[in-house]
Design a protein around this nucleic acid. Structure first.
Length: 320
DNA sequence: CATCAGGGCCCTG
DNA sequence: CAGGGCCCTGAT
């Protein structure tokens, strides 16, 4: 699919805004629906039954942010569509957030202080819709990163749409109702294993509008959480990711997986292994309602440093 | 070659 | 509430 029509709009996020740290997350596994180089981020957007290519370009500075948004489509883009896409993109990259309280409150935390400085203006962000992020959390379950990548790409190749725009070739996610005629066995052929059941049942739930992202966004966290947990295959680990990344709940931190436990044990206690409950108590005490955003800063900083030059103690804790 | 765990979750007893 | 089973893969 060739997306030849385009419209460009300028966006002004709230300051401080760190473009690259917001668009590109080194802790996330790579996938063919997005691409990043310093100052530019491309991704596909399956939105309101239409497929778009999006390019974001940094046209400002951290304290005077400006982003040029270019929308690509295979047909002319109407004005009301443009407005809705702008609103959606602003939301997904948390561009209108005010996190000054985060910096003010946690400035004096010894572990965070240098990190807040290095990554000032980084926001939680997720280029995906809620449904798409759910698929990501499903393929993360009980799998190494390499296998998660394999499953994602297999699904995108089979059910997604390949689009070309701005000399990029990326895959767009399918819509939930695209899997209506698909069986679990069809999905299993893509080597997703027992996750086929979750993918099928969750896609059906979204297709039947049993769950609606726009209704979930304004809900109190506890309610949003219980709605999401009703989905087959979504448990405590996945819901944490969803609440933070898709719904921007900065305090969504009440579950720790074994690999994260090792990292927090090292960072917070300088120890090999501290119990999850002790870690949860400590992050709540130190970072309060900002605890997941704080953890996000720490993880992205860690992964970024590890990408450039291997962090010794991290070796062996994360399997790729 | 076999065995096992890996960025969980569901179900059972 | 603890623990077994689940798909598949690469590591050992």
């Amino acid at each position: 699919m060739n997306l030849r029509k385009r419209v460009a709009v300028q966006i002004t996020p709230t300051a401080p805004f760190n473009f690259d740290a917001t668009a590109y997350k080194p802790s996330h596994f790579p996938s063919s629906d997005n691409s990043w180089t310093k100052g530019t981020y491309w991704f596909t957007l399956n939105f309101q039954n239409r497929i778009y290519g999006i390019r974001l370009e940094n046209r400002g500075e951290i304290e005077t942010p400006r982003v040029l948004l270019t929308i690509y489509c295979d047909r002319p883009i109407e004005g009301d569509k443009i407005a809705e896409i702008i609103r959606e993109v602003k939301w997904r990259f948390d561009m209108e957030a005010d996190i000054s309280g985060f910096y003010d409150t946690l400035r004096s935390d010894r572990l965070l202080e240098p990190i807040l400085h290095r990554w000032k203006g980084m926001r939680v962000s997720c280029q995906y819709s809620l449904y798409e992020l759910i698929i990501i959390t499903i393929v993360l379950q009980n799998a190494t990163v390499r296998r998660s990548v394999q499953m994602t790409e297999a699904l995108l190749r089979r059910y997604g749409t390949s689009v070309r725009f701005d000399q990029k070739e990326l895959n767009a996610f399918w819509r939930p109702d695209s899997l209506t005629g698909t069986s679990e066995d069809d999905l299993r052929e893509l080597k997703v294993g027992y996750r086929a059941k979750s993918i099928k049942r969750i896609s059906d739930a979204f297709a039947r509008l049993c769950i609606d992202e726009s209704k979930l966004r304004p809900l109190p966290t506890t309610e949003a959480k219980s709605e999401l947990m009703k989905l087959y295959g979504i448990g405590p680990a996945s819901v944490g990711i969803l609440l933070f990344e898709a719904l921007h709940r900065y305090d969504a931190f009440d579950h720790i997986s074994p690999w994260e436990q090792k990292i927090y044990s090292h960072l917070l206690f300088n120890s090999d292994l501290v119990s999850p409950s002790q870690i949860l108590e400590e992050v709540d005490r130190r970072w309060g309602s900002w605890k997941m955003l704080a953890a996000h800063y720490i993880f992205e900083d860690l992964f970024w440093r590890n990408k450039n030059r291997k962090v010794q103690w991290l070796e062996g804790l994360i399997k790729l």
